[in-house]
Design a protein around this nucleic acid. Structure first.
Lengths: 250, 250
DNA sequence: TCGAATTTGTGCGTATGTATC
DNA sequence: GGATACATACGCACAAATTCG
């Protein structure tokens, strides 16, 4: 097999990456300016720019326009623990409790709307194409600042006519999904989370007050009652949030 | 607050993204060529190229040089189930069993070396800076083709002089971490996995036979015996692999 | 079979805007 | 204000892969 060609900008990025991981470039250190790299490596500043974009995307570096590129400080990374302990907490808002445990004032806003399920969502909920679902968009905030996004979909066939039709209405507002469904006699037994990296859309970037193109982690979460999916959600986690899964052994 | 500017290439990418998610552009469909987009949107082909890079990075589109850009087929995504059921399997190789369950011939190669722990690894294992660790690099294969990478680090202080010093030596080769440590009287109680998106380095790309810059998911996994970390690993998952976490509720 | 046209990918140069120092 | 530095946008050239007559 033929080796895969390696562009210059990849080589440059790799070189800097090793210096960062190896500790030669400590957190907070200033990286050579594009103009310097142009001189050092004998490349175009445009190519050096491309190399920096890679390190930016990987979260190793941050840019301060007008100033320079700097090695990112140890990711302060607010950790989101996603273990089974928590979702069975019983009462109160999971996010508020999670945030409080880290000394943060966690809150959220939401709005719901009845829509026909997009193809991908219908598949996740195992619904006929064109089925109606209740879509709820959440913006979670930490100390008043936007933290992360979530969009959930629930089959109207399950919740229509019940008191939990609107997730954030009435006395069940803010409670976990399992608790809400319990009130209509549905026992949630399992959550399944699938993770996939992508970047922020323009709309998401605006509500999160981040730059479009920022790399994020998308958690596709689905709650099941036995074999039957009862709720699914897309959770958009900005770089400062890291999902942590705790798995007991044995 | 001042709204954050949205570059043209982001707008273009967003537009196409919506068409893909909404189903207007079905999987396998050919996207307009760069030259067409140049004509349609009145932009430079260079700008159109940047827009495509975004969609490539998000895994929505794949490129066939010389042919065009195409909407990616439904990501058949080999799923990697990461639940506690599995790691307590007891005997045999987790990867081999996992692969066999999907009708795949799973195998791997590895090589170990004693090194001083890099700063980040020392922190994860809660070791003094400069401590010695045994580093083992794995290449897992599916039906003979490269599948994913893993690099593990174990404190020499724990394993020096024991029969499990080399993870892939002797009769314990291929067994799970928990089983191996059990033989030297250490009971692994918990695994913790932290996920972070990044892109492939040149070296990784070569062994995986992928293009450098390909977006991947990095799983930072650490095994604990009580409060004490006993092993940590970086697992590099290419786009075709999706980690799936199953979490029991209640 | 050959060759021409098309298309993506890399690299460079330039211009303009904006933020920082 | 001026110099520096990053970000976007455009244009051009060339290589490599593909497609098609």
């Amino acid at each position: 097999m033929r080796p895969i060609a390696t562009p210059k900008y990849e080589s440059i990025a790799d070189e800097l990456r090793e210096q960062i991981i190896g500790g030669a470039l400590a957190p907070g250190a200033k990286l050579p300016a594009l103009s310097e790299m142009k001189a050092i490596h004998g490349i175009s500043d445009r190519t050096a720019f491309q190399a920096m974009q890679i390190l930016l995307g990987d979260g190793l570096v941050e840019s301060k326009p007008g100033s320079g590129y700097y090695v990112r400080e140890r990711p302060i990374a607010r950790r989101m623990v996603r273990s089974w302990y928590r979702d069975s907490a019983g009462q109160g808002s999971p996010w508020r409790a999670d945030a409080a445990a880290q000394g943060i004032d966690g809150s959220w806003t939401s709005q719901s709307k009845s829509v026909t399920a997009p193809p991908a969502i219908a598949e996740r909920l195992r619904l006929e194409p064109g089925s109606r679902v209740m879509r709820t968009e959440y913006l979670f905030t930490a100390d008043g600042a936007p933290a992360y996004l979530s969009t959930s979909w629930e089959p109207m066939a399950l919740t229509a006519g019940t008191e939990i039709l609107l997730p954030e209405d009435g006395e069940h507002a803010g409670k976990g999904v399992a608790d809400r469904f319990a009130t209509i006699g549905i026992t949630v037994t399992e959550a399944r989370e699938e993770l996939v990296p992508r970047t922020l859309t323009i709309g998401e970037a605006q509500t999160l007050r981040l730059r479009p193109g920022t790399p994020v982690l998308l958690i596709e979460r689905t709650y099941y009652a036995g074999q039957k999916p009862v709720e699914t959600a897309d959770i958009v986690l900005p770089p400062h949030y890291r999902p942590v899964y705790q798995i007991p052994v044995g």
